[in-house]
């Protein structure tokens, strides 16, 4: 409770800092939204032209896309600078976070907080459209709604864990941008689409090595398709929590290796 309060306070400071540069604040928020819309439009064009991808309808693909982008928006909103740890390692600015009697990860998460309006609104819109369509055809019922919320939350923990593990590698290798391209960006982009379009080895990769498939595809198999059982949702949560625990342990070890910079 104390730490949530602390986090909220730091986030407020972070927002006030960013509001000092109002143009940049609004411009970056709007640009991020536009990029997302364009991305989804490309997916929509393909689906509208062919009707489905490997047996996944427009509504289903939209659901997968929306769930993942909402998870990502939450992760990037509440833990923005975990993704930018490299900057702290290279400049040595992690020093000032380590000086304070506050968990370093918490302090890091609160830096450069930004509300991802664009991604949230767009994600919710696509999700509403997709779920509405599927409810009309009777493919899913209202029970899918709470499950979806759970999946989005668990997915954001999973993405956070993957991001944190990747960032932690920076304590050993310093520069992590390229690694992030693979573990965060490429893997997530791949998981935006129904995984059945990929060859088996890539599918395997996306549910084991970089288990981003558990953020949307795996639980959706149950929620949308009623395959397997509700344990698929449970497993997804478990994978997220397990990876998060591992990431926290690695983070602790990594912090002890922090080298700072000369001054």
């Amino acid at each position: 409770m104390k730490w949530i309060h602390m986090y909220a306070l730091l986030v407020r400071a972070s927002i006030r800092s960013r509001m000092q540069y109002k143009f940049n604040f609004w411009f970056s928020s709007i640009m991020a939204a536009i990029i997302n819309v364009v991305e989804f439009l490309m997916l929509a064009v393909i689906l509208l032209k062919f009707g489905h991808i490997k047996g996944w309808s427009l509504a289903e693909a939209g659901y997968l896309y929306a769930v993942l982008s909402l998870s990502k928006a939450l992760y990037r909103m509440f833990a923005s600078d975990v993704h930018h740890l490299e900057k702290y390692l290279v400049t040595g600015s992690l020093d000032s976070l380590l000086l304070r009697p506050v968990p370093v990860l918490l302090a890091l998460m609160s830096q450069n907080f930004s509300i991802k309006f664009g991604e949230l609104i767009q994600g919710i819109a696509i999700l509403a459209f997709s779920m509405g369509t599927m409810m009309q055809t009777g493919q899913i019922t209202w029970t899918a709604l709470p499950l979806t919320v759970i999946v989005i939350l668990s997915g954001s923990v999973l993405l956070f864990a993957i991001g944190l593990l990747t960032a932690t590698a920076g304590f050993w290798i310093t520069r992590i941008e390229e690694l992030q391209n693979i573990t965060e960006d490429a893997a997530r982009t791949a998981a935006q689409y129904p995984m059945s379009i990929y060859p088996k080895w890539l599918q395997g990769l996306l549910i084991s090595v970089i288990p981003v498939g558990f953020a949307n595809y795996m639980p959706s198999l149950y929620i949308l398709r009623h395959e397997a059982g509700i344990w698929l949702v449970g497993l997804s949560i478990l994978v997220a929590l397990a990876l998060f625990t591992i990431a926290l342990r690695a983070w602790k070890i990594g912090l002890a290796r922090y080298q700072s910079t000369g001054s």
Binding site: A13, R16, S17, R18, Y21, S93, S96, S263
Partner: peptide, 14 residues
Amino acid sequence: GVLFGQRTQLWWDL
């Protein structure tokens, strides 16, 4: 209480 003269510990923009 720790001070690094070369680098401020304060919130730069506030």
